[in-house]
Nucleic acid binder design. Structure first.
Lengths: 347, 347
DNA sequence: CTGAAAGCGCTAACAT
DNA sequence: ATGTTAGCGCTTTCAG
């Protein structure tokens, strides 16, 4: 392995100078700089990142906590995060928590503050206490997809107006003429999809329908979950002409359930989801959904995290716990994407 | 941040002793060990991983190179890799190359040998020269899904018998009674799906059909690619009763093409893929495919990589370039998974 | 069984 | 403009 010192010797200078040309710090004469550059090229020198991390007191990596990278939404987000990080010379460590707070804590314990300079959290079912502890240990934390911009979580975050997303979805159905709409909520009653459901209810209300009274089922946020929920919903409420799911995966599952029930989408049943994952485009019929600005959210999250990392420690701590509330960045608004899974109800 | 030294002082010992209890090295008296453990707990000490990496000369992370983590197959694999790594206290760095050798090289340059102790390569379109260079720089490399167990790549690898996979897929179609079968190959003629196509041809031959003469189209390894290819194939060869795709994504695309053409799958057209990704189970109709042992491959790859990392440097180098050929681990055989996308041809 | 000491490769004052 | 020096936190001989 080539070290700074070897490069220095080769160039007839000292390691400090080499370090300086490497990072464009301090003044270095043009001649020496060239000599150093040549030596670096000749020796094929590459900086030793852990050594640098140790000396700088800051690692070049950040951690992304997800419950399972295999969830079809996460890779799209992870890709955007990685791209943003790469631009600034940072690296991405993926931490799967398996939805288990213990595993998440173990990861935070090991990584945060030394191996990774900061932590991005995608709904990974982590204890907030652990996250605050992580901040205290010097690794800023950013929540990547907070659901309620107006109701901050006490942690820096990127917020998406999912309530609006729910409203847009419901409104679309209502405008098509649907009145009997069922809802599939991809989490527990109190869960992270609550805002999406609220938006739905509000839109119904606004249309003069008792939204809260509309058939609703809480299910796991998966294709399977949506499938089972749709089956049950349609069996119990054959009068339904449309289904609203708080996420694309359950919506896709609902479409499959319809297919298995012999219901033609969208002629006999309309289905709408939220997020606009890749699969939404690729399903048949293609899914009408409310697109969430994933890439934008990833970029905001990375920017925010970097800011916190670069901030003086005191400030960073204050941001988390002091007088001034943690920052929340709001993305641009979600927007409806009409595809082939929605149509006016049959008469 | 708490350091080893602080723990040592707190326990009335020296940092060496603390280090020893931490790693169960050297002999430490039971009393001292307890005192040290208490101090660690009391102070909430966590080892500084980069410092350890520097001192040990080995990082606790490995890199996974993929062309894009958003490709639906990769996350499943990445999850298995992460799980295997986690078991042994290592961390996963995801490197998206965007299918660009330059980007891949940049990553290898920065990471290999210092930030990560080894590199796992999933078809990421990297130059072999770069990979050999990486080995030379001290970071073992393992190819994760080599297609031809009998034709080693000159680099340590995990091989899956994809030729057999192709055979199994074709055989299934033939046994159902299909004779007019089209093939969609998810890569260039010379590409990584060649073995899968060879298997198909062989099975056809064995059934007395000129497999090489069967309609075939090379397309990008994506849903879109399969969609377009199927459209073209079915238009040019309306006599086809079945489509074989060398990967699930194109197979799924082919099913969509059939749907858009008004062809009912499997009544009017059978479709079979390879891999058995999550989506294969979830599509409607569910895709018949040849399952590849993804998790097993991930575990083998991690094991092999760790072996290479632990091997004395000389051996590791020799493994790559010396007399004894690089190891190749072969996974268990792929196996047919019959679902709903295949049926006997209509009469 | 435990301590002392010498780095690992790099950065960042501070000198010169 | 470049060199000196003192660490960053940890591991690891080698002594005691």
């Amino acid at each position: 392995m080539t070290t700074l010192n070897e490069v220095a010797r080769h160039a007839g200078v000292t390691s400090a100078t080499v370090s300086n040309v490497l990072r464009n710090r301090g003044r270095v004469g043009e001649a020496t700089r060239q000599r150093v550059l040549d030596a670096i090229a000749a020796l094929g020198y590459r900086p030793h990142l852990p050594a640098r991390a140790l000396a700088e007191g800051r690692a070049p990596t950040i951690a992304l906590m997800v419950s399972s990278i295999a969830n079809p939404f996460y890779p799209e987000f992870a890709l955007a995060v990685e791209t943003a990080l790469r631009r600034s010379g940072q690296f991405l460590i993926i931490c799967n928590t398996d939805g288990d707070p213990q595993t998440g804590r173990a990861y935070l314990d090991q990584i945060a503050g030394s191996l990774s300079a900061g932590v991005l959290v995608m709904n990974a079912n982590l204890d907030f206490a652990d996250l605050h502890m992580t901040e205290l240990r010097g690794a800023p934390v950013v929540l990547c997809m907070w659901e309620r911009p107006l109701d901050p979580p006490g942690l820096p975050c990127v917020a998406v107006d999912f309530r609006l997303a729910g409203e847009l979805a419901a409104r679309h159905l209502l405008e098509l003429g649907h009145r009997k709409i069922g809802a599939i909520v991809g989490s527990k009653v109190s869960g992270i999809h609550a805002a999406r459901y609220d938006g739905f209810v509000a839109a119904m209300q606004a249309a003069g329908i008792d939204g809260a009274a509309a058939p609703v089922l809480y299910a796991p946020d998966t294709t399977q979950g949506g499938y089972a929920a749709a089956l049950e919903l349609l069996k119990k409420h054959p009068e339904l002409t449309a289904l609203y799911a708080t996420n694309d995966l359950p919506a896709l599952g609902a479409m499959q359930a319809a297919a298995d029930l012999g219901l033609e989408v969208p002629r006999q049943l309309s289905v709408v989801g939220i997020t606009d994952i890749q699969l939404a485009r690729e399903s048949r019929p293609a899914l009408t959904t409310v697109a969430v600005p994933t890439v934008e959210a990833a970029e905001l999250a990375v920017d925010l995290l970097r800011e916190l990392i670069d901030a003086p420690a005191s400030t960073a701590t204050a941001t988390g716990h002091g007088a001034n509330a943690p920052r929340v960045c709001v993305t641009s608004a979600p927007r409806l994407v009409v595809r082939a899974s929605t149509a006016p109800p049959r008469v």
